[in-house]
Design a protein around this nucleic acid. Structure first.
Length: 886
RNA sequence: GGGCGGUUAACUCAGCGGCUAGAGUAUCAGCCUUACAAGCUGGGAGUCAAGGGUUCAAAUCCCUUACCGCCCACCA
């Protein structure tokens, strides 16, 4: 790996990203080796739809996974991040159907085989799109293990699972009322139906009682168009108004058909008229009533949403047109009593938002009760846990009230159900091998035309991708996986089902931790959607700001909340951080002299180096802890502030006089120290910002020799600690800031050098100042810094800053406005007095002293003492100023 | 109908029993100090939604209310 030598003015992400990624991938750095040592760390990617384009949700998801994968590689774990894509049944079929429509063709015109062939062709052409886009983010997936939910191996797993569950009685087929999408022409699982509030109308329709010219029942319905499917009118048995009618026949208007009046406590007496028309073929509740009361089911609406031949004159009309026309006819004939507005929830298809039509049809189901009980138990026992934990409640709420899962879809793209129906004897055969003749009667078999719900194959993803049902080395080494990273929108669709299938077929939950991240919203908190036109394309962001800035932003925003508001400002801010890092590295690298990284770095000697390395150790420990607990935002925050506020603002500024000075031994020691620190910083940042850190690593003397890629370098840990160096630097910072602050307060120009006096009773600090004050002169614009035991003995034209460790006097002859300084001191004294009073009162409270933990009380005592010392110094100074006539 | 979140500086958020409630952005003042003006230095800014309670101690725990948002749900 070679990179252009002189360090550019800024990081050229556009040139570097593609070059580095290609090099990583070709070098095999992403590849997992089951034979390698190390505790396994495994993530399977939530497979994006093959039809998809990379959106913000993926970008966040993949970034977090990549951060974890890179971190775990660097701490020596045997890391596998397995990528792949999902065939996305309805979505993909829709895309290809639209393409066909544009050509003036259709799937029906093509026929099933040709159509499926066509989809495969489409997949071949466009299916790599999304995985190419993932690479742009820097995703370190093991591409040699990339899988597709419909590839050969996974298809075998699907078939094995289906047949096994069928044999175990956990899959069954039957005529049930299911959610039907008339546009997609397929059944949907309950989960795939979304509920929207619609403003509709409630129609009151008169049903005359047969054999009576006077008596009639009025039913209230939102769906007059289903009237041709009515097979009863139901009332509550306790309803005095209708008791006389129970058992009689009512005439369904427009049909001339009579239906029984039945009594069932299900009917709500308060709603509408308390009388309900019963349409078992088009309403789940009515279906149940039909079962209990042995009512026939008449389909009034066909699969395409048009009225069936049972609707007589209205047959062939779209259901909503039929509603209008039938309402008009009812009114004309005097059956329509009134219409009331009604707002109610209507089910719509999650893919196309078409109003769902409950429909009676033969479908396949998974019996979920026992599977779900075990899956819930795995989380209750802690075998698997959610982060943040409150999502477990959501998971339980669903698992504990789960209903059977409708898995058959009337689509052509997907895993065709391995079942055959005999044309002769009507038996059904479910089999691992294709069947040619009926094993019962030898008759002709017809394969079940349905395919499986897409989520059925993704439910197997954590083990099917590792080679199951074969007992592969990967499966043995990498199952169960370690962490799953996904959004809360698919906890039910995907996470819950993987839990059920993983436990059932592998005997162990598929992952130890489920990390649920927020959903990415726009800057105003709105969901990003094409129709709103507020979609931000991650690829454009990467082009403009670079993958590193983008990833850092996502990491910084990935707190444990529910949504993330992504704004350009924020990304731009972290873009500046990348630039800051680059420039800091440039400073270090252009001043390294002969220093180079080695296996065994020398211990730091100078105070700045001891301090920085000590802080570095703490930061490394914090970053590790935050990554181990998946607090991504804290990782970003900790690193950002350490690099910018401590490394750049203080450390680099402190060592400049040494680097530019002529004390050669001190200079070379510092050169070694700063290179060491830079190397650690790059490694700490690498999981979040892989590109810029690799680019810089390649330029570090001795870096590539130590580790060809930063990806393979060791993640820093806490190896050095020096509390006294930290205390000394903190003191030097206090002094520096006091002088800067006084300069700003009194408007002293920078070119006028100051000569502050420092008073402290602590010998270690005094010694640090004596030795290192030359490093501070430039930072505060001073010509000298004098240690003075007495502080200022006599009144002087000076500003005072008081600290727990002592005082800084800044003589400002000619600049100081005595009245202003007196005012400043008085203000500070007032706040101090208030705090002292509060602390004194606290310590005077026997309950506080008696009940609060000793260290808390001790802390308050220390604080009070420090405040009193400061207060005394300030009031002394105020007195002096007053003497001078302020 | 059931459940879950949120309400902290102008904006976006962190803090979830104990340092003087923090950060980024924005803002104000002063600086081209040879890594970086994509920068440096200094400053201002908050009744922690409202009310009540528990506690020595509450932004943090409990209750009530208000307003936002999300999820689940077969009352036509």
């Amino acid at each position: 790996m070679t990179t252009p030598e002189p360090l550019d003015k800024s990081f050229n992400h556009q040139a570097a990203e593609a070059r580095l990624y290609q090099w990583w991938e070709q070098s095999g750095f992403f590849k997992a080796d089951p034979d390698a040592p190390g505790q396994p760390f495994v993530i399977v990617i939530p497979p994006p739809n093959v039809t998809g384009n990379l959106h913000m949700g993926h970008a966040l998801d993949e970034t977090l996974q990549d951060i974890l994968a890179r971190y775990h590689r660097m701490i020596g774990h045997n890391t596998l991040w397995l990528p792949g894509t999902d065939h996305a049944g309805i979505a993909t079929q829709n895309v290809v159907e639209r393409a066909l429509a544009a050509e003036g063709s259709s799937r029906e015109a093509l026929g099933r085989d040709k159509f499926v062939e066509r989809v495969w062709q489409w997949k071949k052409e466009y299916g790599d799109n999304i995985v190419r886009q993932l690479r742009r983010l820097g995703a370190s997936c093991d591409w040699s293990r990339e899988r597709f939910t419909m590839d050969e191996g996974l298809s075998r797993a699907v078939r094995e699972v289906f047949v096994t569950l069928y044999e175990q009685g956990l899959i069954y087929r039957g005529h049930y009322i299911t959610n039907w999408c008339p546009r997609c022409r397929t059944a949907l699982a309950d989960l795939e139906v979304e509920h929207e509030d619609h403003k509709d109308q409630l129609y009151y329709i008169t049903y005359p009682i047969v054999g009576s010219d006077l008596d009639s029942l009025v039913v209230a319905t939102t769906r007059p168009e289903t009237l041709f499917g009515d097979t009863a009118v139901a009332v509550n048995p306790a309803d005095a108004r209708y008791q006389a009618f129970v058992g009689q026949q009512a005439l369904v208007p427009l049909t001339g058909r009579a239906v029984p009046v039945i009594a069932d406590s299900y009917v709500d007496m308060e709603f509408g008229t308390g009388a309900l028309k019963v349409t078992p073929a088009h309403d789940p509740n009515d279906y149940k009533l039909g079962q209990t009361h042995n009512l026939p089911a008449i389909r009034a609406i066909e699969d395409d949403g048009r009225l069936s031949p049972a609707a007589g004159d209205y047959a062939g009309l779209d259901r909503f047109e039929a509603r209008r026309e039938m309402t008009a006819a009812l009114e004309a004939k005097g059956y329509l009593k009134k219409i009331e507005p009604l707002t109610h929830a209507v089910g719509v298809c999650y893919r196309c938002k078409t109003v769902v039509e409950p429909n009676l049809s033969p479908q396949w189901f998974v019996k979920t009760e026992t599977l779900a009980a075990r899956a819930a138990q795995a989380v209750r026992s802690g075998a698997t846990s959610f982060v943040p934990q409150n999502w477990e409640n959501t998971y339980f709420a669903w698992m504990d009230n789960i209903r059977d899962w409708c898995i058959s879809r009337q689509l052509w793209w997907g895993h065709q159900i391995p079942a055959w129906h005999c044309r002769e004897c009507g038996q059904t055969v479910v089999s691992r091998e294709d069947q040619l003749a009926c094993p019962y009667c030898g008759g002709d078999l017809e394969r079940d035309p349905d395919v499986l719900d897409t989520w059925f194959s993704s439910a197997l993803w954590p083990f099917s991708t590792l080679g199951w049902p074969d007992q592969t080395k990967d499966l043995a080494r990498y199952y169960p996986t370690t962490a799953l990273v996904t959004g809360h929108d698919i906890i039910f669709f995907w996470v819950a089902r993987m839990m059920m299938m993983g436990l059932h077929f592998m005997g162990q939950a598929p992952f130890k931790t489920v990390i649920i991240h927020a959903l990415v919203k726009d800057a105003e908190g709105r969901k990003m959607s094409k129709s709103k036109g507020n979609v931000v394309d991650p690829l454009l962001v990467i082009d403009r700001c670079g993958a590193d800035a983008f990833r850092f932003t996502l990491c910084a925003l990935a707190g444990h909340g529910r949504d993330i508001r992504l704004s350009d400002d924020r990304i731009a801010g972290y873009g500046k951080f990348v630039n800051k890092l680059w420039n800091a590295a440039k400073l270090v690298l252009t001043n390294v002299g002969e220093a180079a990284l080695t296996d065994s770095p020398p211990a730091p000697v100078s105070l700045p180096d001891r301090w920085l390395q000590s802080r570095l150790g703490q930061v490394a420990a914090q970053v590790r802890a935050h990554l181990d607990e998946f607090y991504f935002d804290r990782v970003a925050d900790t690193l950002y502030h350490f690099v910018w506020d401590e490394f750049c603002d203080w450390y680099l500024e402190l060592i400049k006089p040494i680097l530019y000075g002529d004390d050669l031994p001190a200079r070379s020691a510092t050169q070694a120290g700063m290179l060491q620190s830079l190397s650690a910083i790059l490694r700490l940042l690498h999981p979040v910002m892989p590109f810029v850190t690799e680019e810089l690593w390649q330029k570090i003397p001795g870096g590539p020799a130590l580790s060809p890629s930063i990806m393979l370098a060791a993640f820093p840990g806490q190896v050095f600690e020096d509390r006294s160096a930290e205390a000394s630097i903190g003191f030097l910072m206090d002094v520096t800031r006091a002088v800067r602050s006084a300069r700003a307060d009194f408007g002293v120009p920078l070119n006028q050098k100051l000569a502050p006096l420092v008073k402290t009773a602590e010998p270690a600090l005094a010694a640090a100042l004596a030795e290192y004050s030359p490093l501070l002169l430039k930072l505060m614009g001073a010509e000298s810094i004098t240690l003075s035991e007495a502080g200022l003995a006599k009144p002087l034209d000076a500003a005072l800053a008081a600290f727990p460790w002592g005082e800084v006097w800044i003589p400002l002859a000619g600049h100081i406005d005595l009245a202003e300084e007196a005012g400043r001191l008085a203000k500070e004294l007032a706040t101090l007095a208030r705090d002292i009073k509060a602390a004194t009162a606290k310590l005077g409270n026997p309950d506080y002293v008696g009940k609060a933990p000793e260290e808390i009380v001790e802390e308050t005592r220390d604080r009070l003492a420090a405040m009193e010392t400061r207060s005394q110094a300030l009031s002394r100074s105020l007195d002096m100023l007053k003497e001078m006539g302020a």
